Amino acid sequence: MALQGRGNAMMATVLLCVLLLHFDMAQAATYTVGGSGGWSFNVGGWTKGKRFKAGDILIFNYSPSIHDVVAVSKAGYDTCTTPKGAKVYKSGKDQIKLVKGKNYFICSFSGHCQGGMKVAITAV
């Protein structure tokens, strides 16, 4: 009888974990960077009025033959440089989960970042 009680407690714990995980995932928001215009020049102002949370998903829509998305540090963002080993996205429909704190993204095509194709997002 004690084994059955222990099994029920374990099942209840597993169920609670699944429900909490589902609830956490349901809280994540999805944002299309640049809105209907997509990932393009001068998207920096797109973040105004939005409150981002860790776990939210950014969708970058663009033509992969003329743009990309690179996750960079603040230094890479400020100088429009792609550090060695940086994560480069090239699908044209990239989905990137925000981490807590500062998140920086640039386009690494020549002149694009300097032309305003970069975005900095703080996720709480």
Rank of each mutant, 00 (worst) to 15 (best):
Q114F: 02
A2R: 15
S65N: 12
Q27P: 00
L21E: 05
K87G: 00
M25K: 10
M11V: 07
V88A: 02
K84P: 03
G101Y: 04
S36F: 01
A29W: 01
V124R: 14
A75K: 14
K118S: 13
P83F: 03
A9W: 03
T82C: 11
M117T: 12
I121M: 10
G35Y: 08
V18N: 01
K50D: 09
M10C: 10
G115W: 01
T81Y: 09
G45D: 06
V70Q: 06
C80E: 03
A29V: 02
L21S: 07
F23P: 00
V124K: 15
S108W: 00
V124D: 15
L20G: 08
A120H: 15
K87E: 06
T30A: 11
K118V: 06
G37Y: 04
K84L: 10
G5S: 15
G38E: 07
F41N: 15
K93H: 08
A86H: 06
K97A: 01
T122P: 01
L58Y: 06
Y31P: 01
S108H: 04
G116L: 03
G37S: 14
W39F: 08
H67C: 09
I57Y: 11
G115V: 03
D94W: 04
A86D: 09
F109T: 03
G111Q: 09
N42E: 13
V119Q: 12
Y62L: 05
N61M: 06
T81V: 07
P83M: 12
S110I: 01
N103C: 02
V72E: 10
T47F: 04
D56V: 05
Q114K: 14
R51W: 02
S65C: 05
L20S: 05
S91N: 00
M117G: 04
Q114I: 00
C107F: 01
A71M: 13
Y31D: 01
H112L: 05
A2F: 14
I66Y: 09
K84W: 02
P64I: 01
I106Q: 02
V69W: 11
I106V: 07
F105W: 02
L58K: 10
T82E: 11
Y89D: 02
I66W: 13
I59V: 15
M1P: 10
V33N: 11
K50T: 06
Y104D: 05
G7F: 11
C17I: 06
C80G: 04
G49C: 09
C80W: 02
G7H: 14
H112R: 10
Y77L: 11
T122E: 15
V43Y: 07
G49V: 10
F60L: 05
T30Y: 05
F23Q: 09
K53G: 09
W39A: 03
K97Q: 10
K87M: 07
L98T: 03
M10T: 07
H112C: 12
W39L: 10
D24P: 00
S108V: 00
V69C: 07
G35A: 08
G111T: 10
A9F: 09
C113G: 00
G101A: 03
